[in-house]
Every structure is written in structure tokens, then in C-alpha cells.
């Protein structure tokens, strides 16, 4: 059921004991009709939400740092806390001081993903952009290009691959282990990085939908109203839970990006 069909079904008053079954959420809830078109480009809701996220993040940091003051106030204060958090909790522990030139990328990455995730619980928006995996692959591609490029620039093309292999492994087993390491570091890493973010936001959206729809479905002048109350309680609890997951997933994506970059920079161990 597409979101539009869902809306008409909900408005149609399908409730318990009215001879109408519960319409469980499914993949259809992730397929949107274009809202408007610019030439051949049809803009759907997730795309629009992504653009809004960009505007929010850029707008906020613009407001915070367009005219920086020595004693920060208002938006600048919050912006500085955010940047310091990324630097001291993610960048420094993972890469160290020489990784400071990656701070702009990590800050942008964290806040962009976080705002896109938060769209899930903003009324009217109510869709986490990373629940469409295409958006995620773009970010993963940037991270992959960054850590591969940095690794090759720092260690050279041969050193980059040689350095992935741990030291102290006997030579006779090393050539059996090396393919596993290369496959893991070059291919599995970006794959798990992307799927982790996507799957968390996808599952979160489904989870919220299940209880939102159940609440509406159970509402009726019968015992159903009790179930509806229970379901509504779940909506509130899960919204809080999702708020945590949204920040956590943005954090994990960023910290793993930092970890991979750090891995590329750090010389043999």
C-alpha cells in the first residue's frame, strides 16, 4: 500500500469490529509518488526531506558562525558544543590530532545524517531519509573514497594493502588470510556501514507505523479503545526510543568513518 492509498484507507474509517482487517504496513509505505517535477526530474518526499535537511544544517551553522564572537552566544554556543563533541568524542580518540583536517567532513556527516534521521518523528515529514538506501550509498561512497584515497596517499598503493595485514602472522598462513583482510576492508566495510544505517531507519519507520496504524485501527466504541490506548502508549515509547536510535546511528556512522580514516593514516603496528 503506497502512502497515498494508506491515507485514503485510514480516512475511510477502517476500525476493529467493522468487518475490516488490520492493514499492516509494508514496503509500499516506502514508495512515494512525485510531489512536483522540475523538468524530467520528479521530486519525491524523501528527496524533498533531504534538501530540507541540507538547508537546516547549512542554515544552522551559517547562523552560528557567520559572525563569530569571542564569547559565544545563542546559536554559536550550540554550534561550538556540537563541533567540540565531534572533535573530542569521535575524531581525537579515533584518528588523533593529525586527523583534525577531517573535522569538517565528520561534522557535516554527523549533523546531516542526524537531521535526516530526525525527519522520522517530525510531524508531516515523518519519514527517515536513510530508509531509502540510495541516499545511504552516496554517503558511504564519500566515506569509502576518503579512506581509500587517504590510505593510498599516505602509504602508497602497495603499502596501503600491505599495511592492512597484521604483523606477527607466520608467512605460510599469511597468504591465506590476506584475501580475507582485503575483502573485508575494501568491500565488506562499506557494505555493513551502509546497511546498518539503512536497516535501522527502515525498521524504525516500520515499527512506528505498526503502532500508529494499530492505534487508529483499534479506536472504536468497544473494548478496542483499551487496545488503542496500549498501542498509543507504544507509539510514545517508541518515538522516544527512535529519538535515541537516530542520534546513535548518526554517531556510529561518523565514528566508523573516523575509524576507517584513522586506519588508513596509521602506519604499521
Amino acid at each position: 500500500m503506497t502512502p497515498d492509498a494508506r491515507l485514503s484507507a485510514v480516512a475511510g474509517g477502517c476500525h476493529i469490529f467493522s468487518g475490516c482487517g488490520y492493514n499492516a504496513p509494508g514496503l509500499g509505505d516506502f514508495i512515494f509518488k512525485p510531489i512536483f517535477s522540475i523538468g524530467p526530474w520528479h521530486v519525491t518526499k524523501p528527496e524533498l526531506l533531504m534538501v530540507i535537511s541540507v538547508v537546516v544544517v547549512v542554515g544552522f551553522f551559517w547562523a552560528a558562525f557567520a559572525k563569530p564572537k569571542l564569547v559565544p552566544r545563542g546559536a554559536q554556543n550550540i554550534g561550538e558544543i556540537g563541533i567540540m563533541f565531534i572533535r573530542d568524542q569521535i575524531l581525537r580518540p579515533m584518528i588523533g590530532k593529525r586527523g583534525d583536517r577531517f573535522l569538517p567532513y565528520l561534522v557535516s556527516l554527523f549533523f546531516f545524517i542526524w537531521i535526516m534521521n530526525i525527519m522520522e518523528i517530525i510531524p508531516v515529514a515523518q519519514f527517515p531519509v536513510p530508509a531509502h538506501i540510495g541516499f545511504v550509498w552516496t554517503l558511504v561512497g564519500l566515506t569509502w573514497l576518503t579512506y581509500v584515497t587517504v590510505g593510498i596517499r599516505v602509504k602508497g598503493p602497495i603499502g596501503f594493502f600491505k599495511d592492512m595485514v597484521p604483523s606477527g602472522v607466520p608467512w605460510w598462513i599469511l597468504w591465506l588470510l590476506a584475501p580475507i583482510i582485503w575483502f573485508s576492508d575494501i568491500l565488506v566495510r562499506p557494505f555493513t556501514l551502509g546497511v546498518r544505517l539503512f536497516a535501522n531507519m527502515f525498521a524504525g519507520h516500520i515499527l512506528l507505523l505498526v503502532f500508529y496504524l494499530a492505534t487508529w485501527y483499534f479506536v472504536s466504541a468497544s473494548i478496542g479503545i483499551v487496545y488503542a490506548a496500549g498501542s498509543l502508549a507504544m507509539v510514545i515509547v517508541l518515538t522516544g526510543f527512535e529519538l535515541l536510535i537516530q542520534a546513535l546511528q548518526a554517531f556510529i556512522f561518523t565514528i566508523l568513518t573516523a575509524f576507517y580514516i584513522g586506519d588508513s593514516i596509521e602506519s604499521a603496528h
Partner: peptide, 20 residues
């Protein structure tokens, strides 16, 4: 929070070993 990187790396190796 950073400690989880090791867990993911180990998981990644196990997966890679089976795939390769």
C-alpha cells in the same frame, strides 16, 4: 562507544572469510 569498532571488524572478517 569506540569499542564497538573492534566487534564490527571481527564480524567483518568472519563474513569476508566465508564469502571469499
Amino acid at each position: 562507544p569506540g569499542g564497538r569498532s573492534d566487534g564490527w571488524a571481527a564480524f567483518s572478517y568472519l563474513l569476508s572469510g566465508m564469502i571469499v
